[in-house]
Simulated scan of single mutants.
Amino acid sequence: MLFQRLIQKNSEVWCQYLDHNFVKGLKEGTLNKENFLFYLKQDYMYLINYSKCYARLALNANTVEELRFAIKFQNYTLEGELELHKSILELGIDTSNFNEKDESLVNIAYSRYILGVGENGDFLDMLIALSACAIGYGYIGSKIYKDISKEKLQNHPYKEWILTYSSQEFQASVKEFENFVNSYTEQISEEKFNKLSKIFYNVVRLEIAFWEHSLKMEINI
């Protein structure tokens, strides 16, 4: 399957992404609230641009099925993840006051890289550029939920985040995304796979950078 091949080809960075210290802090509940709020604020702005990336994906669509997929996941991002972040952030940060000066350089690099892939590549290139976030968070949410007890989760400081990304609804969307990626397995050449692997490598590295800059709370690089 295509997505499993991408993981195997880039296993080192993929493991660094899933097992980053930021993720470990989330799971254990030891992550400082300031780091979590910095991450949420940046991720809220990222998800706005991530939603725009699905509009770019729709433009690259060649079939009705591809178009429906792009629009469905754009709506899911806007109505699901974005609203979750907004509800948490409003406990301490007013999202209506966000502007371009609040967006970190890592955030800019990540979302603009994905858009660049879509502008210079095809539908599948763009799909893979979106996959590290769309599928990776599902892997992380599921693993955290399985690793902690129900008792610990009950009073966990990041309970809402964990329950969102481990939920049946989110896990179903992850499976749908992964299956859609895998539906192209037999259609691609080795040359195309190598191109997709480079894209995947870059977006996974950018996910790692996103965790890292949230730990350091760095707006600038």
Rank of each mutant, 00 (worst) to 15 (best):
G136P: 11
N194M: 03
Y139R: 13
Q154F: 12
E160S: 14
Y158L: 06
F193K: 02
F170W: 14
K159Y: 04
L196A: 03
Y165Q: 06
S183F: 07
Y165H: 05
S197A: 13
K143T: 08
I128S: 04
Q154A: 13
G141Y: 04
A134Q: 06
S166P: 10
F193N: 05
P157C: 12
I148R: 10
T185P: 01
E190C: 00
S149P: 10
I148A: 04
K143R: 15
H156N: 12
E176H: 14
K146Q: 13
L127G: 02
K175H: 09
N179I: 02
K150N: 15
P157W: 10
P157E: 10
A129I: 08
L127A: 04
I135Y: 06
F170A: 08
K143N: 10
K152Q: 15
S142H: 14
I140C: 06
Y158F: 15
E191D: 11
S131E: 07
Y165R: 08
K152H: 15
Q168T: 14
G136V: 08
Y145E: 12
G141N: 01
N194T: 02
L163A: 04
N155F: 14
F170H: 13
G141A: 00
S167V: 09
K175I: 08
L153Y: 07
Y184N: 09
V181T: 12
H156D: 08
L127M: 03
E160I: 12
K195A: 06
G136N: 10
N179W: 03
A129V: 04
L127N: 07
L153I: 11
Y165M: 05
Q154C: 06
K175D: 06
K198P: 00
G141F: 01
A132P: 08
W161I: 05
N182M: 08
E151Q: 12
A132V: 05
T185E: 14
Q187D: 13
K143V: 00
K146T: 09
L130Y: 10
K175C: 00
L163W: 05
T164G: 00
E176S: 15
L153V: 07
E169A: 13
Y137E: 01
S189K: 10
L130I: 02
Q171L: 13
I140M: 11
F193G: 00
Q154R: 15
Y158V: 03
V181N: 14
G141L: 02
S142D: 15
E178G: 00
K150M: 14
I140W: 10
F170E: 05
P157S: 12
A129P: 07
K152G: 07
L153D: 04
Y165D: 06
I162A: 04
S183D: 09
L130A: 04
K192I: 00
G136L: 11
E176D: 13
Y139T: 06
S131R: 09
L196K: 06
I128K: 10
F180L: 04
V181P: 03
P157F: 12
E178N: 07
F177Q: 11
Y139M: 08
A129G: 11
I188R: 02
K192D: 02
K192V: 03
E176G: 00
K143I: 00
Q168H: 11
E160A: 12
F170R: 09
E191W: 00
L163M: 15
Q168L: 13
K192F: 01
Q168F: 11
P157D: 08
